[in-house]
Nucleic acid binder design. Structure first.
Lengths: 340, 340
DNA sequence: CTGAAAGCGCTAACAT
DNA sequence: ATGTTAGCGCTTTCAG
């Protein structure tokens, strides 16, 4: 059967605890000589500690939940830039001997269940609505370290990490304004009083205000974050003659869909209409013309998340306030001055 | 503290075991009356079983490892189509009360460690080289159910699930031949005697053979699976005047890079050179012109994987032989007859 | 149909 | 520097 601490202890002629201490690197508690002897036996017998036994006895699982919304019976909702973050997360966490448990969440109650069932030491909430984060209570999350990524929730039980969505949209819109655009459409999913999309919308509005461009409600478009929906939007924009000469989209995929819709309708990008995306996903560089977009600092997002998690886990540090990461406008080829 | 079985048992005035049996749905072992009473208390007290305690006592963790290569110190290697498979996997597995543990693997030995440390009931190996799979021995994997995705390894300890790579490349190349191409280049990463890329290469070769096109080694190009590498390849092809009028690439991203390199060099796609990709990732539809490519049946890949896993777990069934999934050629706009 | 005993593999808290 | 004791929360096995 499985090799246990006891086996090693017997073979080494020491007690269980000594082996345990060696395995856990508690150097202060064991002499260098026995330490080395035990380590050799451990390697030779191929001993691997049992995570469940540890988790049970130590009340710490060294397990971090990677919680992702799973709409209804459907699939997980994993956006491309999320994937990149996850890769880095896993690596960093593993270096500290923490492991990731991937879990789709259909109803809020499942967050609680996941946390308690596996005795998670922490969790990263990826892409949940602010209102879901808001609802988390200390009863449901206990004392685990929770990072809510891309959330603007003020819930003090969670550590927020997000990009500066407001400034991103501000930069994008200013860029358009500077090029001479006056009628700039906004395209994004429905949003509430708080959240990523709301921030982006407000940044856009602010840039308009700065330029003293009067607000026209018809420029605000509610569109799903999909290529198809973006395409429809592009077609509609072309058909409506709303006079819009530029689009700020809340996602690259949406922007790219819009470009296709526009082009199909006989409008040129950026000749007739300029387009700015958001996220700087890989595809932004692969479409023609290459998409001007707002880039997030994904590596920073991952490392901040890990740092926050570890600070809380190791030093039980008080959650500082939410971290907002810088954002940059990447000017490529989908923006140009409006044609007179 | 935590609500335990014992708490419930005391409150209900029954023994621990009765509660355990109720919670685990062993209906035969408890009367309907007590069953309902206990269930109510369970709900009301918010009892959640401890997975680690279960795992320890039952020697089954209900945990499936999602093992992904992590090159050196680097990030996880997660391709876009892998992500889609993972989403479905998670959902299906969770419906059966299994959970996923995401784990990057830098050295083969870590597979063993991951398996034993967490007492995994099974694992899905995503995108490992065949030679890694080959090396797995019963000592390292024990009796866990292992699905090796996209592997052509004959290792009887693993269940193989993959797409029909050979036929995919065959179809792609035949399509090109049918259009009238005679000098068709192959672009893909270095490959060994077995594996996904080897299969694709052989499919390509076979189509050439069918058409009695003599083999010219210079048409076989070793290229990394990246956009940049593809672009370089496109440029080189344009510069070399090798006479190639078409390209079969082993990945969409590679094909798209090649298109860009070709275009930059003044060659038109598909006017001067036709291009076929592989995988039918999302971006294939977003580039201009839209990419002709070979589509895998991703949902099937996920559900076969789950079925294989569950069969092994639930019924301890003998692993049948590897499953190969059908593949289809999606003709879009990057292929056309060669210009005379 | 229900219960008691034993133990899964490990660690925290005290000894010594 | 090392050992002892007492569980962690659950399931297995065997008895009623």
């Amino acid at each position: 059967m499985r090799v246990t601490l006891k086996d090693i202890a017997e073979e080494a002629g020491v007690s269980l605890m000594t082996v345990s201490n060696v395995v856990n690197g508690k150097k202060a508690r064991v002499s260098e000589a026995t330490r080395e002897r035990i380590l050799r036996i451990v390697r030779q017998r191929g001993y691997v500690p049992s995570a469940s036994a540890r988790s049970l006895a130590a009340r710490s699982s060294r397990l971090i939940g990677l919680l992702v919304p799973a709409e209804g019976d459907g699939n997980l909702t994993i956006s491309p830039h999320t994937v990149e973050v996850v890769g880095t997360l896993e690596r960093e966490l593993r270096r500290h001997d923490y492991h990731l448990m991937l879990r789709g969440i259909a109803e809020t109650a499942e967050i609680n269940e996941a946390l308690r069932s596996w005795n998670l030491d922490g969790a990263v909430l990826l892409g949940f609505q602010d209102k879901v984060i808001d609802r988390l209570t200390s009863r449901t999350v206990g004392n685990v370290a929770i990072v809510a990524m891309d959330s603007y929730s003020e819930n003090p039980l969670t550590l927020g990490v997000r990009s500066d969505d407001y400034t991103g949209a501000l930069l994008a819109t200013r860029h358009l304004v500077a090029l001479g655009h006056r009628r700039i459409a906004f395209a994004g999913p429905a949003f509430a009083a708080t959240g990523v999309v709301r921030q982006r919308f407000e940044g856009y509005r602010e840039a308009l205000r700065e330029a003293a461009i009067p607000w026209d409600e018809t420029l605000q478009n509610t569109v799903e974050t999909t290529h198809g929906s973006g395409r429809e939007f592009g077609r509609r924009l072309a058909a409506e003659h709303s006079g819009a000469t530029a689009i700020v989209a809340t996602a690259d995929i949406l922007a790219i869909g819009a470009m296709e819709g526009l082009t199909e309708s006989g409008l040129a990008v950026p000749g007739d209409v300029s387009v700015v995306g958001f996220d700087d996903t890989e595809i932004a560089r692969y479409v023609t013309p290459k998409l001007t977009t707002v880039a997030q600092d994904l590596p920073a997002k991952a490392s901040v998340t890990v740092r926050l998690l570890l600070d809380h886990l190791l030093r039980a540090e008080t959650p500082e306030k939410a971290t907002t990461l810088d954002v940059t406008l990447i000017e490529r080829s989908t923006t140009a001055p409006p044609t007179a």
